[in-house]
Design a protein around this nucleic acid. Structure first.
Lengths: 195, 195
DNA sequence: CCTACCGATCGGTAGG
DNA sequence: CCTACCGATCGGTAGG
């Protein structure tokens, strides 16, 4: 368990903002320092290396995705479970928009070892979607030619969301999620409940 | 009309490969030179600035997308037209995988002016999808709650494709396109032709 | 958290 | 296309 001080959280937030806009390599340690109104070298009172900031962000988002999925549990049927998985995913992206952007765009900048860890967690996470779809197909709830491509299809819709979610947008995330879920259920050949 | 010499095309290809993997800022001019087995400074016999390479790649992909859409023409009905738009888009991504990756991931690294030009072309391109969906809804071919979100939904599926297309994969792109098109038509409430 | 500094490397150029 | 170099800036550190 790592204790995160207020100042360190400010630093993470600044890193999320700048990394999401300029990229990891396009942001300098001095850029980050300026956001906090301190001198460049002063950041190293809080971190050991620039890459640690990227890792902390990516790790945090990976954990949030996992927690969102874990909270759903195993009691739901395939359709309700997929609905919940999609909604949780979109809510995490919306709640952590900058961090999520960094997660998807910059994770490849991590060191070999850290990159491998993220890749594995992502595989496991995506496998949950795949299993849910497989199960739905076996139960005759979903009707698709290839569950594998159907899973990629669903994850595409979810993973692209950070590209167009606007922090300022007045549109409530719940509304977006509902529509995307409804479209996806139809795509998978399931009838949406309230249609 | 810019004449592209063989050597310059090699340079563009190298830039596509390295930018897509390490990002624009994560790739140095020396990295590019090493790919061509020349000294760092020698690249400047071919280019005026590093950013020109990024611009050429992004511009090229934007043109390909536009050409693919223009070739479809206006004679098709909304469903067939959307099918053709989606297929053309996926084929362009597959044919220009590295360049397309750079297009989607690194275009924000461009200078203000160039970025604005790309943003506008992209808006126009996406508006074509939106119009096609609108038209389909008006004709009763598509049934969606919000044509606007439906368009974002469709573009999400298309734009994420560079993330999982594998150059080595034996799976033919046509098969993938067909399945994605079929899933999307169902999502929009249209019956796929051969189902 | 600051001052002052480190070696390394960056994109780019001059002259051949 | 090479050699040799430019000023600027990079991530990071020492000592306070």
């Amino acid at each position: 368990m790592v204790t995160i001080t207020d100042r360190r959280m400010e630093l993470l937030t600044a890193a999320g903002t700048l990394f999401s806009r300029w990229g990891y390599h396009g942001t300098t340690v001095r850029d980050l320092a300026k956001e906090l109104d301190v001198q460049g070298g002063s950041l190293y009172a809080h971190i050991a290396a620039k890459e640690d900031l990227l890792w902390e962000i990516v790790d945090r988002v990976a954990a949030r995705f996992q927690e969102g999925a874990d909270a759903i549990g195993e009691s739901l049927g395939p359709r309700e479970r997929l609905e919940a998985l999609m909604t949780a995913h979109l809510e995490t992206v919306a709640a952590e928009l900058h961090f999520a952007t960094v997660f998807f765009n910059e994770w490849q900048c991590l060191s070999e070892k850290r990159r491998a860890r993220i890749a594995q967690r992502r595989d496991e996470y995506e496998a949950m979607f795949r299993r849910t779809i497989d199960q739905g197909v076996r139960q005759g709830i979903f009707k698709v030619e290839s569950p594998k491509f159907a899973a990629i299809y669903v994850l595409s819709v979810l993973n692209w969301s950070y590209q167009w979610f606007k922090p300022t947008a007045s549109l409530p995330i719940e509304g977006v999620a509902k529509q995307f879920v409804a479209l996806t259920l139809r795509a998978l050949g399931a009838q949406a409940k309230n249609t």
